[in-house]
Structures are given as C-alpha cells and as structure tokens.
Write a protein that binds this DNA or RNA. Structure first.
Lengths: 257, 257
DNA sequence: TATTGTAATTTCAAATATAGCAATAGATGC
DNA sequence: GCATCTATTGCTATATTTGAAATTACAATA
C-alpha cells in the first residue's frame, strides 16, 4: 500500500500552485473547474487557506496569495540552505577539476559570492564569501542578467556604467545584449578574461522547479587550463546543479496525484 | 455554526510555522510533542508535506523547508502587491496631508521607490517609481538599516562610502549608529534635510506578521511645513501601515484553533 | 430603485479518508 | 553483535470531509 498521504493537504498545495504572476486572483469557480472539485469544496478550501493566512480575500470570493509566503521564503533563504548545500558540491567540483568554484546570489545590481572552494595551489584571484562582483563583466553576472525579464534587463543596462578592465572587456550595449541572447540559448555563461586578465570562468544556472534562477555555480581559473576542457567542466557543473536542485526541492518528479 | 474549515490544512500550516531560522529541521517526534499529535499522524503529515514539495527530507526523519517557499514568495512579490496595495493608501495620505508620500523596497545596498503620490502643487523633489536612493542619508534608508541584523549593518556601513550633501548630512559612523539605535527604539525614522537642503521626511516600517520589515511608508516635503506636524503625520502613517498590513496578510488575529 | 441572474454560503446526511492501535522493519548506538 | 529507539505499515472505527439542495448575498441591468 502506498503510504497514506493526506489528500486535503495535497489539494491545498495544488491550489497554491495555481497562482502565478499572470493569475494573481482565483475564485471558487476557477478552482472547481480546474481542479475538478465540487464548488462547495472549492469554496471551503479557499476559506480554510484564508483562515490560516495563506490567502487573502480581496473581495467576496476573490482570493490572492498572502504575503505570508514572502515571509516563509525569507525564512528558507535565511537558513542559508543554498550556501550549506552548495558547499560540499563546490568542494567536490574543485577537488575533481583542480580549479576554483563558487556559487552566487544577485540583488538586481551586483552578484554576491555565497560559497566558494579553492584548489590547494595559489590562485590568481582570491574570492571570498560576501564579495560583490559587477554583473555585466563576469560569468555569474551575465548569467543572472540573462535570466532577467526584458524590462529589468533594460533597466539594469541603462542604470549601470561599464568601464574597461582588460582588452577583452565588453562595454558596448549591443554586444552585451547579443551575448546575453547566446547565454539564454546555450544555458551557460563564459567569462574570457573580461574582468581580470587571464581569468576564465564558466557558470551555469541552478533553477527552481518553476524555472526561476536561484543561484549559479561556476568554475574559474587561468584561461590556459580552462580553455580546452569546456565539455568536461560543463558536465561536472550540470551534475552538481542537479544534485543541488534535488537538495533544495526534493526529488524531481512528483508523479502521483 | 462556524464555517467548516479543513483541519488537515490547518495542521499542515501549523507545522510549517514551526520552522524558523533557529529551528531549520524538525522530526516527527518534535511534531508529536509540540502540536500534540499522535506520532504516526505526525509522521504522515511530514510525508505528505514532503510529497507535495513543501518539505525536504535531509536524512531519515529529519525534515526542513523546501526552497519551494522561496518560489512562492517571489510569486507574491512579482505580483506587485505591495505597490498596488500601497498606492491608494499613499494617495489618501497625500490628499489628507498635502505632502508627498512614498513606499520603498531595499536590496541591501540602496532603497528603491515602489510607489508614490505627490500633491498637486509643485514639489522640490521629483521622486519617481524605480528611483534608487542612498540608504544612509534618507528616512527610508535609515529605517531599513535599523531593521538589519548587526552583522548586515556592519557590512553595510563598512562597504558604502558616505559623502556630504548638505550641512545636515551625517557621515560619521558613530553618529549614524546612534541614530539607528534611536530609530529602533522609537519605531520611525526622520530625515532633516540630510540629502536635499530643506527636504524633511518621516518614514515608518510596514512589518510582516513575524516582525520583518516588508516596506516603509513616508511623508516628505519642505521642512517648514513638516516640522511641526510630526504627531499628526505619524498617526496618519500608522493608520495606513495597519491597513496595508491587513491587505497583505489578511485580518490581524487568527484567533480560533 | 426594482429586478434578475450569478455566485457565495449554509445545512445536513452519506461516504470516505484519516487517526490511532498494534505490529514490523529499519537505524543507530554501545 | 545485540539492544534500543524511531520510522513505517496494515487494519478498522470513527471523526471529517464531501456534495446535493436550499438559502442568502451581491452586482449588473433595466
């Protein structure tokens, strides 16, 4: 016998998943239709979710998500889960590949290192947890930019000056936009000495179940060593990504109803 | 008869509320004890919440919140609820007091205007939605700083240069820290022409049910007009705050079990 | 302002899913 | 390797949820 799971709780979460930016408000009738519930049952679930503070009634029968979830979300982030789960994976990557690795967060302007691993031998750059990096000229940063919506990207590019650091630095808006388009297509970002002479990096996104970028993982090191091994690095990063996503969200496929 | 609410859903949310930064992991035994559930029932709820993706099993029997909540939280934020709910309240404040008003968000470095209202007559400053303001020399910014933890505050003060804008600008770290302590105690922040000559502002925090600052509301205008009416302004802001909190989280007191 | 259609809400009996006991399997520590 | 503790499963009584029908509230229209 499959383990007894509580159907009411499952339904409650199915309801929560119906909400989206395009669909901020839901009524009992919507529910009844889309989840195939009786109208009365649908109504009662909405009332229940309202009373526990998960939903707010905007007007009679019209419910939207409560800000409670922003709180719960912050609670999850505050627990430093990302950094804690990423750390062993970064250690593994660095051990295996012999290069530096790191994970980042993004606040809309700059990228912040939230975890890192470094090989035993000395490294050109000394990245530390908490360090902030420009978004427009780093692998992580460009990856985050590639995951912004068009309006946010426009605002970022308009609002942040770009100076030349090395011969490889890309300051031209059009070229940057082109590269971001490429990153969106190929699913990873490169830095070919654009910020520090001779420093190469490859970064991949870690996504939520709904496709949002949650963090990035990268390998970085002298371009001489990293230039050739792109496929191997990418493979290792993808595997670490999958493990991290599983650690954050649990096993991938919620199959049964 | 009280409306029929689904007990299982209520229990599920009680479980979710047990998690906190200090308590990131919970076991069935914890649950059974604290919510007075049968051990088997507690276990089944944890399994259910795991299967819907709300919890992740770290090891056998040890559960923590899934990053799913970070996603749901982002969904709430993306819906622009804060700005949408704040707008009519700001309009009301500005109509009533005849001064500018605004609401802000904070990314750890700068404060961003997310909604604003301006009186009919021309105003010294032209604040626009999306505008970024320094944190250390504005009412909103200091309010946000006052709500940071000690380590974040230290990092902010260490990482952000402070220049003199007017005679009233406070650049000294000790004086700034003292003022932040005052703000923490009194629950509101002032700007006495520290950023723009003659521009006065009073800002109050809007908090989540768990006490976290979610946004700030302020009244701003020429210091001549605003200097004397502090009590009235504070009262109006507090009332708007209460309304906004109710709109975000629903009615205040979840009394019954 | 009255009217009418639509959707939310309540009532109550039937059905079903859940709770808890008792037993087993699986870890963990000594 | 054994003992102990905790997680997990099977099974049934029962408390909870469900849904049809009836009622009430709302909103749009005349």
């Amino acid at each position: 016998m499959a383990p007894q799971i509580n159907g009411s709780v499952v339904k409650a979460f199915e309801i929560l998943h119906l909400f989206s930016p395009e669909r901020p408000v839901i009524t009992a009738a919507d529910l009844a239709r889309e989840l195939d519930l009786n109208g009365v049952t649908a109504h009662r679930f909405l009332r229940t979710l309202e009373q526990v503070g998960a939903l707010v009634a905007e007007s009679r029968g019209h419910y939207r998500l409560s800000f409670l979830f922003a709180d719960l979300g912050d609670r999850v982030r505050d627990a430093q889960m990302l950094a804690r789960l990423a750390q062993p994976l970064l250690n593994g990557l660095t051990d295996r590949l012999g290069e530096g690795s790191m994970a980042t967060s993004f606040n809309g302007a700059k990228v912040t290192c939230i975890a890192k691993a470094q090989p035993r031998r000395a490294l050109a750059v000394d990245v530390r947890v908490g360090v902030e990096l420009e978004a427009w000229c780093t692998a992580h940063g460009k990856l985050w930019l590639a995951h912004l919506g068009e309006t946010e990207l426009d605002r970022y590019l308009a609002g942040h000056a770009r100076q030349r650091f090395t011969a490889a630095t890309v300051t031209d808006e059009q070229r940057l936009r082109q590269e971001i388009a490429v990153i969106r297509k190929q699913g990873f970002a490169l830095n070919r000495g654009e910020r520090e002479e001779g420093l190469f990096a490859l970064a991949v996104p870690v996504r939520s179940r709904s496709g949002r970028m949650v963090t990035g993982l990268s390998i970085f090191g002298p371009s001489g060593r990293l230039g050739g091994a792109q496929a191997e690095i990418l493979g290792a990063l993808r595997q670490a990504t999958a493990e991290l996503e599983a650690g954050l969200y649990g096993p991938p496929a919620p199959i049964q109803v």
